[in-house]
Structure formats: C-alpha cells, structure tokens
Design a protein around this nucleic acid. Sequence first.
RNA 1: CGGGGUGUAGCUUAGCUUGGUAGAGCGCCUGGUUUGGGACCAGGAGGUCGCAGGUUCAAAUCCUGUCACCCCGACCA
Length: 511
Amino acid sequence: MSTPAAKTAITPRRDEDFPEWYQQVVRAAEMAEPSDVRGCMVIRPWGYGIWENMQRQLDAMFKATGHRNAYFPLFIPLSYFAREAAHVEGFAKECAVVTHSRLEVNAEGKMVPGSPLSEPLVVRPTSETIIGASYAKWVQSYRDLPVLINQWANVVRWEMRPRVFLRTTEFLWQEGHTVHETEAEARAETRQMLDVYEEFVRDHLAIPVFSGEKSESERFPGAVQTLCIEAMVQDRKAIQAGTSHFLGQNFSRASGIQFQSRAGTQEFGWTTSWGMSTRLIGTVIMAHADDDGLVLPPRIAPIHIVILPITPKEETRTRVLEAAAKLAGELRALMYFGAPLDVEIDQRELGGGLKNWEWIKKGVPLRVELGPRDLESGNVAVSRRDQPVKAKEFVPAAEFAGRAVELLDSIQQNLFERAKQFRDAHTRTIDTKEEFYDFFTPKNPAKPEIHGGFVRAHWNGSREVEEQIKSDLKVTIRCIPFDDPATPPEAGICPFSGEASPRRVVWAKAY
RNA sequence: CGGGGUGUAGCUUAGCUUGGUAGAGCGCCUGGUUUGGGACCAGGAGGUCGCAGGUUCAAAUCCUGUCACCCCGACCA
C-alpha cells in the first residue's frame, strides 16, 4: 500500500495539536482556504453553504422579531467615524483606510495611487456611525420609533494574527442597529436579541452557551453595556459566539439621532447594535468536529443525506442507480425545518471508500449505502456522522424515508447533548486562588496540553484583578451571568483580593 | 512594531555544514487490473530552488541586500 491507511482521516488528532487539527479540518472539508491577501480567506462552496443556512435561519428569526434588512455603505467618512470618542479609540488600530481614488502610471511605469481624497474613508469595521447618519435623518418624532434594521455585510478589521473563520481581516456578518424611544425599550431589545442568538446557537448549531454581561474591559468601544453568549469548544477554551450592545445615547449624541417626544421636548434616541459573524462556522468546527473531520449539525448542513450507490458489477449498475434515484426522490419530497431535504447521489467514478471518506470529512449527517446485496435484502446501510465512522445500521429501504427526519433530529440532539456534557464536565466552581491558578496552568508548559475550562469564581469587580489574572494566565472574565430570579446571586469572597464579591463570574481562556 | 524561525513541483519535503547538470512521497494525467470501503501495476506531465546582486570555471548550497510567510507577545466578532 502506497499510503498506509491512517487511523484517523485528520492528522494531527485534536489531542496532538488542536490548532493544526482545526486547519486540517477546514482544508479536508473544503470549507475555506487562505487567500493571497494576508488575513483574508476564500470561502469555498461547502463553507459558504453552511453560512447561507445560518443566514437564512437567523434572518427568519430577525424578521419574526420585527426587523427588516437594509444596506449601508462600505466606506465611512473619517469624520463620521471619529464622532464617538471611545469608539474611534477602540477601533483605530484595526482600521483600513482608503486615501486615494485612482491609479496612475508613474515615471517607472508602475501603477500608483493617484488623486488623494479630500477626506479619507474608513472601511467599516462596524457600522454604527454611518448608519447613525441615516437614522439622524429618518428620526424626527417618537412616531418614527422604533427603528429596527439589520444589515448583512462584510467588514474589515486589520488583524495582527488571522485564523481562518475565527479571526480574519475581512469577514461576513450581520449587524442589527435599532433606535428606541426609551432606555427600557432599548435595554429590552438588547436582551431580546441576545436571547435570539442563544436560541439560534443552541437549537440550530447544537452548542450550549453561557450568557451574561461583559466586564468593562471587554465591552464594545462606545457601548454602555455589552451582552454576550460564550461557548466552550473542544480545547476547553471559550469563544464569544454573539454580542448585543446597549449603546445608551452615546451614538445618538454622536450622530444627532434626535426626536420630539410625546411631551414635546427634543430627546436623543436610545440605540442598540448586535452581531454574529462567520466566526460561528469556526465555532461549529471546534465544537463538533472529530478526528475524522467535520461533523455538521443537520440543521445547517448543506447536504443532509448523501446516497452512495455501490456498483461493483456492470450488470447490476443500472438497477442500483435506479433504486438510488428513487430513494433520493422520496427523500427530497420531505420537509426539514421548512425547506426540502438536501440529498445528493454521489455516482462519481471513484474507487473504493474514497467517496465515503470525502463525505465523512465534510461532515454530512447521514450517509446511505445502496448496493446489489441491499437490493436483494431490501435494505439500505445507514451511517450517522455522530457515530463511529464504521458503524452502519441496516434499515428496510421502504422505511428509511419515513425515518430520515427523525434520524436527523436525533443527530442534532445528540450533538447538543455531547457538547453540553463536555462543557459541564470542564466547568468548575473554584474558591481559592491556588486551585484557580492550578486549573489554568498546563502540566507541560513547553507544549501545553489541552487543559482548563470554565471556572465560576468570585470577583470583587476591580479591573486590577482582571488584569493581573490576564497577564498571569491569559484567563479573562467571559461573562457576568444574568440575575436568575429563581436563584439569587450568591455573595462571597473574591479569592484574588480577599474582598467582598456580589456574585460568581465565568472565567476562561478565550479565542 | 519587538523576539525567534522558514522559503525547493499543486501539497509535504530531501539535498545546503563539505559548491559539480534537482530527488522522493502524496496529488494530477493515460492505459490496464480492481471495486461493500481511504486499491494495485505500468507509463507520463509538472521545478526561473522567494527575489536581486556578489564570489566562483561552476551556486538550491557560500556572502550581501530585499520580499514573503509562520510561531511567540500587544489587539480582537
């Protein structure tokens, strides 16, 4: 054998080198690849198909909560961007700036930028300020409120250290921007959209999250309050999966979003913004994929079921293909969460298990093998991507279509349960500094093994404690959990300062 | 921008210390044998050795410069 069959489809395994494993999964599943532009990625059809599914489902949730889509410019005049002090300061270091409008040939025959712009344009890293300029025109009266708009767009943040899907210079996202008459309404909107995110990530991506508020140091530049959902991935690090910001009147003051109130006075609007990005694709990979490649939650899989006709002999080939087409037809007539099942018959002339492995690496939830022997016995061989690769269940062909949706639901549910068990197994309550430091310190500092997780620990609320822990351990506060009416927050002692703490907060190393 | 490292075929790389016509595996193409599992045999295509300059009869190899990328740090959806 020229290539000894690897034990796993992906090398290295997760436990050997998690970051490298991640990149290999992305590559093996043909989701994306690095481009010639540093920090930017080419999203290939399989990765983009996942994004399209996320988009479609999230978009429906936005519409259901009263939002509409619109589109605002890619370029933001520098003067607009600079209107909110904390905002510019926060984003200044990662802005791409357009300064010229044309190319000219210089004396050496090279193309060089020609006419300087009268005002530089910032390529949007987020759109609060440019959208605010429109809202200032649209909002005159309390009767114009609320404004509930979302945009699907690309944004650019000039990152120092890009990682495909997780942190790229250009990425795709949605950003909701709303204006409200009252503070309470805006705060409710901020929370409502976070809840939408939590539901989406839990029910569609099969990932459990902790939700809560960011500490001041992790807050969005310019926001009064930032809410977030935090997921744990398989190297036990946290990843922020979505954020929702209550912006108070900071941006309405900056952009002049003013309205005449019911009482006849001029008031500034209360605004919010909230976003989710292609980073979610990376989150899904790190949460669910295994040593054989991607594992997709059925609800976002571009293909739900792949049918693999086995045609070893020419004389049975036609009959097998006919049976495969018939089965595909039955399956495609089925609805799965409001859309027809996506079913592919892979009849490429590829030898052996090569095709099978391709679909394993792509993470297709169900693989169905159909060969001459199955025609005899009236069965199909069904493999679930959430089960070991070699596991097969023989199901009567006549029954399979009837069970397909149930099987997909079962995979979806199983992935969630598995992720939740993993997270819970690596979430601790810790009360001493020693235990905390021990938990987050790898046994082998030279080549850190997968370690740590989430810790619920008390905190005195000071920035100094946060910074000390960050510089010692690279551990940060991921969120301050919301008040749960059922169980009031438990007061205690901050193990780092010895001071009083009103509640436990969630700590972790983060992406 | 600081500290370290690497540039050889689409990918992974050998060769560099000690200069002498560029090698392998995977992938790709063709033909054949195979086919319930990442097949085998035979043949084939593919390289300005990152770029520029220098030393030399001769440079992937030595020297100088330069560019790019990777890892670690500050930043981050």
